[in-house]
Design a protein around this nucleic acid. Sequence first.
DNA 1: TCACAATTCAAGCATATGCTTAAATCGGGT
DNA 2: ACCCGATTTAAGCATATGCTTGAATTGTGA
Lengths: 218, 218
Amino acid sequence: MNQKGNITKATTKDRILEATECLLAEHGFEAVSLRDITGAAAVNVAAVNYHFGSKEKLFEEIQCRYIAPVNAERVRMLKRAMADDRVATVRDILEAFMRPLLTVVKRNEMSERLFFKLMGRCIVDGQGGLPDAMVPEFKEVARVFTNALMTAIPGIHPEVVLWRLHYTFGVMAQTLLHGELLVKLTHGACGEPDVETQFQQMIDFCHAGFLSGEGMGA
Amino acid sequence: MNQKGNITKATTKDRILEATECLLAEHGFEAVSLRDITGAAAVNVAAVNYHFGSKEKLFEEIQCRYIAPVNAERVRMLKRAMADDRVATVRDILEAFMRPLLTVVKRNEMSERLFFKLMGRCIVDGQGGLPDAMVPEFKEVARVFTNALMTAIPGIHPEVVLWRLHYTFGVMAQTLLHGELLVKLTHGACGEPDVETQFQQMIDFCHAGFLSGEGMGA
DNA sequence: TCACAATTCAAGCATATGCTTAAATCGGGT
DNA sequence: ACCCGATTTAAGCATATGCTTGAATTGTGA
């Protein structure tokens, strides 16, 4: 019924989504035009407005399609680490915060590289213009992770936790978006670590950062 | 000779620069148009091309005007910390890497808030399209800081140093660009720390991150 | 005062942008 | 075979973009 038997030709709507995802990952939310999209998807300009209402709504839909499952998986992993009243370690918590990027990509047909860039863009470009529907979700994620961290690091200032979570976002965004560039700029002197290694390195860094002795006291 | 005695009316060229700096800080490199600039500066459209050649050259000039002194000050501070063959501590090095943002702003008439945002944009947006003239300078900064860190943390992998420097960029960019947003999203639950406090918190976090025991060995 | 260069200006050019429209085409159900 | 709603299409609209032009205006040195 929804499979036309034609292999290369997905629905117009899907072709638009796929093309837009790639373009956004490569060039960012500000730099992609309607005609860039319809050109890449080999689709009429009007199709975007027909299927999504407007360019902005298309972009929001893409942000939601990617961020929502990541956030859901984050909460799920955190809950699992705290099941049976266990106290999650800082490393558990950071794993739960970061790894969903890695697991969600597996369910997607996009290349890892593009997916990571797109997620980076969602964190950076998107943060000001995040779809309203997602704000409560983000607040919830921030809340449960903040609570978990305050339990895991007794005596830490709640404000310090928020800022350090913010820094963790920065570490992720920088790596997702500009990791490739670092490899190029240093002519490979930074190595070309596989994704799992990179994640562990980020977690090591942020883990130590969270445990930094400063910023303690009630 | 270059002072017309008129207080409010700087040269056309300066008015263009100032207006562009503000607009770039607020909206980013992709979203500012020629007419946004000439409108804000109350200047004819042709003036930009007359004084700067093109919109792109204007943007490059602004990037250089801000990044170059910051990078110079970074190297200067690092050299000072290593004078007389002293071994700079990790904290010295991070101070030298971050504080220049703070000292350079003082020499500028822009508001702190706008200046920080602009610097954040230079790190994030600009990193792909950095003016060619600045690439060697950046490589030099990376080189001297990497060397200093490898001396300060004996046995750390050079690749790990590069990645952790990269993370440090991310922490700075996220804070410079989106610090305001965090304050808003959390309704002030993160406090509203003054600039010096924020810098110390970033340094604490990255300091601990660099000293993380992982990633050691030759 | 006058000539000359530097600067500013209004106007316009070519192209790109997001979106709409009205007509054509498709596809399934009867 | 026919109809009708869903989808796709070509064409165009209004506006915005970066930049150029040729004329006006300004400032300066002789």
